[in-house]
């Protein structure tokens, strides 16, 4: 992580401690989570104790203290989506990705989050995959969208493996 980005964000808010939450939101927006070094920098530059920053980052749900996966899936569980079957969507997402809400898989492929309303209630149930909205979504469609993503991920992983040195070693072993 480039600490310069963090400094820039802090400076943009004039280094005001009242802007703490806004600064953290911007950092999360820029690096997708809140790395320890970033929080330490904020604490130092704003002269806010680390304990207060920790309280804030755990109180507000938006903040993530662990890195997010390459693909972020948000499933709305708001009332409008709930009565139109959001639970079935979430179950499908969990099944296909193998990731529980609030978690990320060890390979950092998928992060699954639940939200309680995205303001698109008329389109419920709503799922957002990498910023793209899927409204009136059904379990079958959910499975299709995510399986496709998963396939791409696996293919890319295999491709990487093929190019890496480990693969060469593996190939050697296989031949001998």
């Amino acid at each position: 992580m480039d600490i310069g980005i963090i400094d820039e964000i802090i400076d943009k808010h004039g280094g005001e401690s009242g802007a703490l939450i806004q600064i953290l939101l911007d950092i999360q927006g820029a690096v997708n989570w809140l790395p320890k070094e970033a929080l330490a920098r904020v604490s130092e530059k704003l002269s806010v104790p680390m304990s207060r920053i920790q309280h804030i980052t755990t109180f507000y749900k938006t903040f993530s203290l662990t890195p997010k996966g390459r693909h972020e899936i948000h499933v709305c569980l708001g009332t409008a989506c709930h009565v139109r079957g959001a639970q079935d969507i979430l179950a499908t997402v969990e099944e296909v990705t193998g990731v529980k809400p609030g978690e990320t898989d060890p390979d950092l492929n998928f992060s699954v989050e639940t939200v309680s309303c995205l303001g698109c209630c008329a389109l419920g149930p709503v799922m957002v995959v990498d910023g793209e909205y899927h409204g009136n979504v059904k379990p079958a469609e959910t499975a299709k969208v995510l399986s496709q993503l998963k396939l791409t991920e696996t293919a890319e992983a295999l491709e990487k493996l093929k190019q890496s040195e480990t693969a060469e070693v593996l190939n050697l072993c296989a031949c001998q």
């Binding site: 708001g78 009332t79 409008a80 309303c117 698109c120 209630c121």
Partner: peptide
């Protein structure tokens, strides 16, 4: 802040 899950008047 419009926290009511399932409402979006204020958003609009």
């Amino acid at each position: 802040d419009e926290g009511d899950p399932g409402a979006y008047m204020d958003r609009s």
